[in-house]
Amino acid sequence: MFEPQIMCFLCKWCTYAGADLAGTSRMKYDPSGINLRVMCSSRIDLQHILYAFRQGADGVFIGGCHPGDCHYVEGNYKTLRRSILFAKMLEDLGISRKRFRLEWISAAEGRKFVQAMNDFTAQIAELGPLNLDKMTLNNQKDFSHE
């Protein structure tokens, strides 16, 4: 059975803390996603997302604070604006925009994090593997960050 790989970028103040809360509440969810903690969701750039897909991710998830709650005043709005562009560019590159998701999850929303993870994993499972890494494997050497 296909087991998706999901790259999750979580803001330190809200969604990462929400994921921690899911843990302290012992909620269970699909283990397909692995989290990378950033200070703010606005730290994430298109190249991080593309890189994740090239490294074999089947889906990329960004979690940030709810609008108005950003620790850095308006970082999440920047993320929101960028994510619209991200989704468009992904489509242009032949990657379904359904493989990318942005969610606002607060430190109090452990349950929402669990639901988002399960839901997104199911969605990716339905889409099937992306295999971008295999498609572009021959070009790996050219990639400067190797």
């Binding site: 990378l36 950033v38 991080h48 890189y51």
Partner: peptide
């Protein structure tokens, strides 16, 4: 960003995936 450079994020993403 100090201690969260693009190269660090790339390396972490690679390790994770």
């Amino acid at each position: 960003q100090r201690n969260q450079t693009d190269d660090q994020i790339f390396s972490m993403v690679r390790a994770i995936l």
